[in-house]
Design a protein around this nucleic acid. Sequence first.
DNA 1: TTGACAACATACCGAGTAGTATGTTCTTTG
DNA 2: CAAAGAACATACTACTCGGTATGTTGTCAA
Lengths: 213, 213
Amino acid sequence: MLGAREVVSDSSTAEILLAAADCFMERGYTATSVDDVARRLGATKGRIYHHFPSKADLFAGVFEYGMDLICVVIEPYRNMPGPAAERWTQLALAHTKHMMRAKTLARVVWEGVEMHLRGARTPEQRLVLDGLVKYRNSYSNIFRETIVQAREEGDFHFEDPAITVQSMFMALNAPIFWYVPRPGEDEENIESIARQVVTFVYRGLTGKGELDL
Amino acid sequence: MLGAREVVSDSSTAEILLAAADCFMERGYTATSVDDVARRLGATKGRIYHHFPSKADLFAGVFEYGMDLICVVIEPYRNMPGPAAERWTQLALAHTKHMMRAKTLARVVWEGVEMHLRGARTPEQRLVLDGLVKYRNSYSNIFRETIVQAREEGDFHFEDPAITVQSMFMALNAPIFWYVPRPGEDEENIESIARQVVTFVYRGLTGKGELDL
DNA sequence: TTGACAACATACCGAGTAGTATGTTCTTTG
DNA sequence: CAAAGAACATACTACTCGGTATGTTGTCAA
């Protein structure tokens, strides 16, 4: 996607990406030094700069890796036949579960979007970020088209699609901020949480109740 | 709240807080230097360090200022008589509108919570952040108690209150990430957006529809 | 008038940090 | 087996940042 990088088949590069994801999640982009990532690898900067031209590109690599993963996760449901509302449910469930399973990568992607919204940065970093956010937008468009179609089919009800997609994603993504994996009871926990979160959003999309102000 | 600082009556200190809020929002905590804040003020570090012992305390000041403000905003509805569901609607509307009107401060508060969730930091910074997050939790407890009461009254339906409160707040806070104030048409815009967002969440809380998986 | 203190500005220090230039070792290929 | 390049490690530079120590100016009470 967007040129530059082939699929991460190199195992050394993949190892760097995972270590970088951990660091970026724990401290955030600016607070993470390249030396931090190297330390976590038991290596030195040399290794990282051999594979990535800059810290920004390392971050971009993690972002893209995270996006690639979640795209694979929801792929089976993208073109599912049947009502759009049911397709949305499967997409949302897969998405939300992945938010918890790959919490680290998900938060890096989040920070990437946040950084982009902040603006600023150097012109070249803008270009990189713009590309990444375009990737991210193509992902969110999958959901957008689905809920719009479900509205046309009479199952979902809302006014502005843009506002609705934002509200929806924020709620679905929420677990990446508070979910803490507990070894052992993980899988059933994830299932239960995802079900509750998706139910909440599903009701928000299907409900007809108006506010009496 | 939590000792240390009296109400911000000093105008110079207040000016510093607002400039700091702008900087923290634009670049984030770590990427914002004390010199950045000083530059925005047309001053130097000396002025800031005269009023705040450290960068962390400056951040804490902004956080506390932001929390003080939003507490004032929702105060009129805290003990509103009548059904909890209606009280929640008023609270949520006031909250969401404030997220857009005071977007800058709201995002600083957000980052404070995010920083706390990351853990790490020095022990003393932990103490400061812990206090701030306690403040923030007392705020979210207002909403928590309201929705639990509304459930007892039969208006809201959900399983785990913790999960529900998180999903709710994420959706209500969403505008701080994408709302961009447009001069002139602000107020009606804010009203419209807040109404749509709160309606979405309201339906999520009241709806009964189950997922068919 | 004067001394004391508040409210800053200026100058500086030590600790990082992104990035580079170069050395070293291992692997692959002709 | 030799030579070339990949995959790092080491050493270094230029720079930034949080924090402090100290200088300067205005204000105000005695």
